[in-house]
Amino acid sequence: MDDFIYDGLPSRVIFGRGTVAKLGAEIERMKLKRLLILATPQQVGEAEAIRDSIAGNCAGIFAGATMHTPVDVTEAALKMVASGEVDGTIAVGGGSTTGLGKAIAFRTNLPQIVLPTTYAGSEMTPILGETENGVKTTKRSMAILPEVVIYDVDFTLSLPASLSATSGMNAMAHAVEALYARDSNPITSLMAEEGIRAFASALPRIVEQPDDGDARSDALYGAWLSGVCLGTAGMALHHKLCHVLGGMFNLPHAETHSIILPHAVAYNAEAAPKIGEVFGRAMGGGPAASALFDFAGKLGIARALRDIGMPESGIAAAAEAVSGDPYWNPRPVTHAGVLALLTRAWAGEAPAA
Rank of each mutant, 00 (worst) to 15 (best):
G134F: 12
G246M: 01
D154M: 11
T188A: 08
A55K: 14
R12H: 12
C229R: 08
A59N: 06
V338I: 08
L23P: 04
S184A: 14
F293Y: 14
E130G: 11
A202D: 05
G84F: 00
K33D: 13
G18A: 00
V13F: 10
L159Q: 02
S226Y: 06
V153T: 10
A264I: 02
A82K: 11
E270D: 09
A318T: 12
F293N: 03
M1G: 15
I315T: 13
S258I: 08
T343F: 09
L110G: 14
N133E: 13
V207N: 01
H238I: 08
L299R: 12
L159D: 09
R344P: 07
I127E: 13
G60P: 07
G24M: 07
L190Y: 14
Y6L: 01
G45C: 01
K31H: 10
S96E: 08
V265C: 00
A318H: 12
R17S: 05
E48W: 05
A296L: 07
T166R: 01
E208G: 05
V73R: 06
I54D: 06
G95K: 11
P330R: 13
K33H: 12
H253L: 04
D294S: 14
G93T: 05
K31I: 00
D307L: 00
D3Q: 04
P146I: 00
A353W: 04
R306M: 06
G337L: 07
A77F: 02
K240F: 09
I260R: 10
H335M: 04
T334L: 01
L251K: 03
V278M: 09
G18T: 00
L32M: 10
A352K: 11
E320G: 09
